[in-house]
Design a protein around this nucleic acid. Sequence first.
DNA 1: AGTCCACAGGAAGGGCAGGCGA
DNA 2: TCGCCTGCCCTTCCTGTGGACT
Length: 399
Amino acid sequence: MSDQDLQNVFKEYMEQDSFFQNKDILSFSYNPDEILHREEQINELASILAPALKGEEPSNVFVYGTVGTGKTLVMNHISEHLKTVSKDSDVSLETVYINCKLKKVADTEYRLLAQLARELGKDVPSTGLPTSEVHNYFVEALKEKEGVVIIIMDEIDTLVKKIGDDFLYGLTRLNEDLGDSRVSIVGISNDLNFTDYMDARVKSTLSEEEVIFPPYNALELKEILRHRGEQALLDSALQEGVISKCAALAAQEQGDARRALDLLRVAGELAERDNKTKITTGYVDKAQSKIERDRVVEAVKNQPKQSKIVLASIVELNKQKGGNIDTGELYNYYKDKTNNMGVNTLTQRRVSDLISELNILGVINAKVVSKGKYGRTRKININLAPDVVKKLKDSVDYL
DNA sequence: AGTCCACAGGAAGGGCAGGCGA
DNA sequence: TCGCCTGCCCTTCCTGTGGACT
């Protein structure tokens, strides 16, 4: 092969797989220059938080909306702008963003306080101190700011479900002894009904204002995809109908823009891998099943050993009798399995919790039913397509 | 109408690891 | 090093319950 030939091969390759001008733009964490179809929410939030720029304490806000409706994106956008303006006009304003869903960050009161204090510039060990001590660190950090601190708590519903609302109550009372500093809280929640779990006092102080993010409809998703697609992809890369299809599928998923972007990106990656010249609608279908498969495999991979063994028991029992497994039956099977494997056997109580966790992950479907005189149990069904189960068996131990 | 099964799921606490200050 | 604190996984003990059966 001549040098020229070799160069042609590379050249061809370069030409073939360059659907993407900038793939990052199709990632959900990318901050676009313009946020489409959220003007109303942006204006509302901006006017609620604007008093902070005068050093006044803004009202606490609750932001509601299902996944992929742009809540986090909009909040980040606003807090960036607040920071810029406050810097220009010499106002002391700080925003702190915490994602309460991240494990090891905000699943206990200690960790949450530690993380908040860290964000405000204090050095706090990840364990070892009494919680009250960490609380003091946090309050100190707030006092030192001598200005308004806006705490944005994303996925706040998971926090409240885990550690209760006492913590939030404490936060709302903080302003009484902060000196020159003021705190206000922006809570972001996926769950519209979640304030029902909360104490009425906390509820009323925290949700002084509420902003709702409705799901995007297919038309809006289409515009969002087109907008981002124009910057991320080459004009020639898309077959007619690809964007519409991504939008339509994502609209079925509660108007989830994240899903829409993922679909387009993954469809592109798959088409690229096959050396195609265009992304076709067929690749959107492939992307849909790949995303689902990856999500499940990733989730299961990260489960602890015992949880995997429980899942393996469910898979095997399901194969034997085709679904509707009840708890007692599963536990007996699991007990035998662990004995055969020489692994220790957990109690039924613990296994019951593991079943719940798998249920929350969406890997299985466990529903409490009553069998009348024959007691109450959970009917467990596996919630995965056969190809996903196969992939799990290939790539996860104990399965 | 009452019984009673087979669990669900809450509460409390044990034991261990990681990490702190003294 | 010790005493203390928290997180995590787990057990023990317990109360609650939907509805087929009697």
